[in-house]
């Protein structure tokens, strides 16, 4: 358990991301926890979809990595935070990667920007040659 400001963070699950099957598994785990936290159907779907986008980026561009899901409480709010870590090539130009339509892999180029729009908080850190960390958070009033 960790306290930052008034936020209490408790690790709920860790999932390796090295295959399509593991992405499916992550989505199921995230959905289960979103339901347990009392997220509405729309918020469940948004958070699971954002998770799916980032998980696939981790696999496709980061060469695989890990996802850590934690439960948050902050006064009258509860939430979920999901952090993706890979040791892939990193992203040289984060602003460009976030731009709708930019893709280096023949996708739609909407995953990163879409994930940011689907969640309440979005953080990305990346260093070329070292890897990428993306974290998303979704809150719900108790």
């Amino acid at each position: 358990m960790m306290h930052v400001g008034d936020v209490t963070e408790t690790l709920a699950a860790e999932v390796g991301l090295r295959s399509d099957e593991e992405i499916v598994r992550l989505r199921q785990i995230v959905r289960d926890h979103a339901i347990a936290q009392g997220f509405s159907l729309v918020d469940q779907t948004k958070f699971v979809t954002a998770a799916s986008e980032l998980a696939r980026n981790t696999l496709q561009y980061g060469g695989g990595g890990d996802a850590r899901l934690s439960k948050l409480t902050n006064g009258v709010r509860v939430g979920l935070r999901l952090r993706f870590v890979d040791r892939g090539p990193g992203i040289a130009d984060i602003e460009r990667a976030l731009r709708d339509g930019f893709t280096s892999g023949g996708g739609l180029g909407l995953g990163l920007g879409g994930a940011r729009r689907l969640c309440d908080e979005f953080e990305i850190q990346s260093e070329p040659g070292k890897g990428t960390v993306v974290s998303i958070t979704k809150w719900k009033l108790r």
Partner: peptide, 13 residues
């Protein structure tokens, strides 16, 4: 479904 429609819109598809 409604939740999927909303999600698709946010994704920008």
């Amino acid at each position: 479904r409604p939740q999927i429609a909303q999600t698709i819109v946010h994704l920008g598809v």
